[in-house]
Design a protein around this nucleic acid. Structure first.
Length: 528
DNA sequence: TTCCGACAGTGGGGTCGCAAT
DNA sequence: ATTGCGACCCCACTATCGGAA
């Protein structure tokens, strides 16, 4: 396939906001694509490169090169050129890279150059990622989109499914079955404000601990155990203690869904940052495991072979109600490695609701993040952010002062978007606690742009510094330790609730009150 | 006709590990 | 030795389209 074709379709897709039109355009493209084009075309359509980032930006690719007058590059030509570019590294490679870039750009038309620059700098935005591409693929191959979606969830991505469909037609989907050793996209949760709201929506459900660690999907086939993350990265080699623990479970072949966390000497969970650091450590795993052992805790099972199979409909449990899947979990996983839960029956009486609230409070008191309320009759919605799982977390708020704001990108171009948030110090100065761009409506975005411009004292083209007068109410999930910000802490998941026109900067919250609201963090900060 | 689920976009902080300086 | 940067971890929220109700 010609690269120009792809560049043209990308431009057309970006130019329309109608999803149906985007799908039709992509379907046309897929009809003309060969199976071999797929591993290149799919990432390009999503604005990604199969090679990942190339380590070059405007400095290298921004130099103008006379465009070709006729398109002749194929998508595979471009892919090969970018691979070559990625391979060139080491001292004295700069001129070689520049040469390769000039060669590629010189072979591209003006339209192709624009698309290439967008790809390399990560600025392709066309309102069509995998979901729209999936629909287009279904249309192009005359396959029901629900079938394609299920295959994608089981394959862990669109690419292998697209390749199979284009090479062999709809029949190829049969090959995508739940298989031990091949990860599937995990089910995700929506949010609810309170436990009561969640119960109102769900009926019969289980209220479970929400643990603040790293999501894991664990596959076991005899002694062979593999551990995958939420994005299906294989992290088995980094978690030896999880492998050992799972080998002791009852059952030889199964797939579990859970979380790994770290516990301190008293059984309280350690900070997320510590767990993430441990899971990210690859060099000296044995030492890292000794210093911070991880505990796997499971809440679901997707596949399990049993001795008395034959009556239950096979080992694939995805379509079983959660209540029944949990019975399998109990059979496989010993109690301390299952999340704690409280079951609420349908049409629950007041006592049960009160008990669910107490479970939530107790879970927080034990140092965990919150709860997830799960509908018991619901199947496992692989890869979906299903409405049958609702997470509930406590929300804290602060009144902070806007110290500066950054010019936005994309649809926020020309708007002051990302706010720098400060808390007062005793001496009247401000300590920056972090940034946020979340929670703003278009109306509020326009308003704050105007207002902040009035307060501006400096604009370096990226950050606009303002007089510290505007007070904004910020919601956040907690504090985490920081080496970047002066108070040694930063807000986790900060978002705007509203502007406080009724408050002056002198009435905003102070660093001391912020720290006092999170005493556990101060404890953590004192040890080594 | 209205409602609501699914998506895309717009970025936040931390950590690790590698390449360049 | 330091620094910059990409890749992953965690993530909230709004606007929009289009099918469901």
């Amino acid at each position: 396939m010609l690269f120009a074709r792809l560049a043209q379709v990308s431009q057309d897709v970006a130019a329309t906001s109608a999803r149906t039109r985007k799908i039709a355009l992509l379907a046309e493209l897929f009809r003309d694509a060969s199976a071999d084009d797929v591993p290149i075309v799919i990432p390009y359509l999503a604005g990604r490169l199969p090679q990942g980032r190339l380590g070059i930006g405007w400095r290298v690719i921004g130099d103008p090169v006379a465009p070709a007058d006729r398109p002749r590059l194929t998508v595979r030509d471009v892919d090969a050129a970018l691979s070559a570019l990625k391979d060139v590294s080491g001292t004295g490679s700069q001129t070689r890279r520049k040469h390769l870039v000039a060669e590629l750009m010189g072979a591209a038309t003006a339209d192709e150059q624009r698309f290439l620059v967008g790809l390399v700098t990560g600025e392709v935005r066309q309102g069509a990622l995998d979901a729209v591409a999936l629909e287009g693929l279904a249309r192009a191959t005359d396959t029901p989109s629900a079938d394609v979606r299920r295959a994608v969830m089981l394959a862990g991505g669109l690419q292998p499914v697209a390749r199979a469909l284009l090479a062999d037609g709809p029949g190829a989907l049969d090959a995508f079955r739940l298989t031990v050793g091949r990860p599937v996209l995990p089910m995700l949760a929506h949010s609810a404000a309170t436990v009561g709201d969640a119960l109102d929506k769900l009926g019969a459900c289980a209220v479970e601990e929400k643990l603040d660690g790293i999501r894991v999907q664990v596959h076991r086939d005899g002694d062979e155990v593999r551990v995958f993350t939420r994005t299906l990265d294989d992290i088995t080699e980094r978690l030896p203690e999880v492998v050992l623990a799972v080998r002791e479970f009852a059952g030889e072949r199964f797939i579990l869904d859970g979380e790994v966390i770290a516990l301190d000497g008293t059984g309280r969970p350690r900070a997320f940052q510590e767990v993430a650091g441990r899971v990210g450590s690859r060099v000296d795993v044995a030492r890292a495991a000794e210093e911070l052992p991880l505990s796997p805790v499971f809440f679901d099972v997707l596949y399990a072979e049993t001795e008395e199979d034959g009556r239950a409909g096979g080992p694939d449990l995805l379509d079983l109600p959660y209540g029944e899947r949990h019975a399998h979990l109990v059979r496989l996983v010993p109690e301390p490695m299952r999340v704690r839960r409280y079951v609420v029956e349908d049409g629950s009486a007041e006592e049960q609701r009160a008990a669910a609230e107490r479970f939530f409070a107790d879970t927080l008191a034990r140092g965990h993040e919150g709860v997830v309320v799960k509908e018991l009759p619901a199947p496992y919605g692989a890869g979906r952010r299903g409405a049958s799982w609702l997470k509930v977390k406590p929300v804290h708020t602060l009144d902070l002062v806007v110290l500066a704001a950054e010019w936005g990108h994309g649809r926020r171009t020309g708007k002051l978007s990302n706010l720098h948030l400060g808390a007062r110090r005793d001496d009247g100065s401000y300590a920056m606690l972090g940034k946020t761009f979340k929670g703003l409506t278009d109306v509020l975005l326009a308003w704050q742009t105007e207002r902040l411009r009035e307060l501006a004292v400096e604009d370096d083209g990226h950050v606009v510094t303002v007089r510290p007068e505007l007070v904004v109410e910020i919601a956040y999930d907690g504090l985490q330790r920081s080496t970047r910000y002066p108070a040694g802490v930063t807000l986790r998941f900060a978002r705007v609730v509203r502007y406080r026109d009724d408050k002056t900067a002198e009435q905003a919250d102070t660093v001391d009150t912020v720290l006092a609201a999170h005493p556990h963090l101060l404890d953590a900060g004192t040890d080594t």
